[in-house]
């Protein structure tokens, strides 16, 4: 009698360090230092320093080096999108996830089964990265950051037009936009350029290095100036980007009577925006919204869906209602706020 093929849950398991591929001997986005890690993208909750060997796209490796320094891992291996390699009997390739520059889904094939670990992803057009590519599979591992039907992201250009409108109507005030340093910042700048804002954008110091990195990867961000030494007079009527934590802290005192904006999917909920003292909430997210999560599950056609971080229970409930065998994976350590 032939042995039955291994079930997916036998060769992809959850360990304290993160998702582990048993025959391949590697983790995907481990939250603690491990020997071999496949990293889907450069956000710090997915890409940690101190691993023995990291396999990722060249862009993600460059981002990790910029954030942690060149010695962030014992060894690195860059894998271009679409290139297949084999690790311990598991075939692996990386496919664009549309989340940020270099972001990838890990497509794993073993024993006749294909598992896609999508990392963080979105389905909207983003001028700073390649679009998400749905890969038909047997098991789809998905995030659930915005997995509630109250989250339907509006058109991002409409949000940028609102931002510019407030900026134009307040020639004496700074408009400061809270943005995550990696991805959101550069996407907002690119969108500003697309709708015709070609003046300078002032940056908090913590954003400069990653903007340089994006520019070096061919994403033109136009004139960027440091806000830190600009002086109050120059910042009157200026558009300023800063990490969310700096917007409500001492750093912001250098701004001219600032109007506080924030670019995040959480801005959809008024109370959340008000709690953070935001006057101009911009609903711009690098994650799939509710409709996009469900559409993606439909498109990849996976009979089984594993849900990792976010509002797992709602997405599991909705996927089951569509006849999909869905369950939550208890993967710890992903950070809600980098959204």
């Amino acid at each position: 009698m032939a042995a039955s093929p291994p079930r997916p849950e036998d060769w992809i398991t959850v360990r304290p360090e993160g998702l582990y591929c048993v025959p391949g001997g590697f983790f995907v986005d481990p939250v603690r230092p491990v020997d071999r890690a496949v990293v889907t993208h450069g956000h710090s909750d997915h890409a940690r320093s101190g691993h023995g060997c990291v396999l990722a796209t060249a862009e993600t490796l460059a981002i990790m080096a910029a954030r942690y320094g060149a010695g962030f891992a014992g060894a690195t291996q860059a894998l271009a999108y679409g290139t297949k390699i084999t690790l311990g009997g598991v075939r692996l390739r990386l496919v664009p996830a549309g989340h940020i520059l270099g972001s990838a889904q890990a497509v794993l094939e073993h024993a006749g089964t294909r598992i896609v670990i999508s990392g963080d992803y979105k389905r909207r057009r983003d001028p700073t990265c390649l679009p998400f590519q749905p890969v038909p599979c047997d098991v789809f591992v998905t995030e659930a950051t915005f997995a509630l039907p109250v989250f339907r992201h509006p058109d991002d250009r409409g949000e940028i037009v609102r931002l510019l409108d407030v900026h134009r109507r307040n020639p004496d005030r700074s408009v400061v936009v809270g943005v995550y340093a990696l991805g959101k910042c550069q996407r907002v700048i690119r969108l500003l350029r697309e709708v015709g804002h070609d003046g300078p954008v002032y940056l908090h110091g913590a954003l400069a290095a990653l903007c340089d990195l994006y520019a070096a990867h061919g994403i033109a961000l136009g004139p960027l100036l440091p806000a830190t030494d600009a002086g109050k007079a120059a910042l009157a009527g200026a558009l300023v980007l800063a990490p969310p934590a700096a917007v409500a802290d001492r750093w912001a005192r250098r701004l001219a009577d600032p109007i506080v904006a924030m670019a995040s999917g959480w801005m959809r909920v008024r109370q959340r925006a008000r709690q953070r003292g935001v006057e101009l909430p911009l609903v711009i997210s690098d994650h799939a919204d509710w409709d996009e999560l469900l559409r993606t599950i439909d498109e990849v056609g996976a009979p089984r869906v594993w849900v990792t971080h976010g509002r797992e229970e709602a997405l599991v409930h909705a996927a089951r209602a569509r006849g999909v065998d869905a369950r939550a994976l208890a993967v710890v350590g992903f950070d809600e706020e980098e959204s």
């Binding site: 039907p149 959809r268 909920v269 109370q271 509002r311 709602a314 909705a318 209602a321």
Partner: peptide, 26 residues
């Protein structure tokens, strides 16, 4: 219009009836 469980989770998250209904209405 909306699945009862999904509405309950959403209301729990948003915390305000008018805003939950406004956002969730298909």
């Amino acid at each position: 219009r909306v699945d009862a469980e999904l509405f309950a989770w959403s209301y729990d998250f948003v915390g305000d009836l008018a805003e939950t209904v406004a956002l969730i209405w298909p």
